[in-house]
Amino acid sequence: MAVKVRIPVPLQRLTQGKEEVEGNGGTVIELVRDLDKKFPGIGERISEGGKIRRFVNFYVNEEDIKDGDEVSIVPAIAGGKAVNSKW
C-alpha cells in the first residue's frame, strides 16, 4: 500500500530535507513503522508505545489508508525560546 507522505518542516531533518516521501502501510501506525525503517528516529518523534502522540495529527483522505493516498503529518508548533529539542 504505497502512499505519499507530506513531511512537516520540523521533521524534514530526518528525511534529508525531503518534503514528501513514499511510505507503506494500511494503517497510520503501520505507516509510521515503515517510515521509521527508512528514516530512523522519525517513529519516536511521531508516536509513543504504538500510538500517535497527542500533539501530532495525521490527515488522510479517508480513515483507512488506500493505495495512492496522500497522508499529511501535522504537528503542533510554537516558535520561540524554549530550550532543548530533538526535532
Partner: peptide, 20 residues
Amino acid sequence: CLFESPPPPGLVPSCQEAGV
C-alpha cells in the same frame, strides 16, 4: 480538540534553534 496536550518539553524545536 486539535492537539490534546502539549508536547513534552524538548520534543519540538523553537525558532531560536530551528530558525524562522
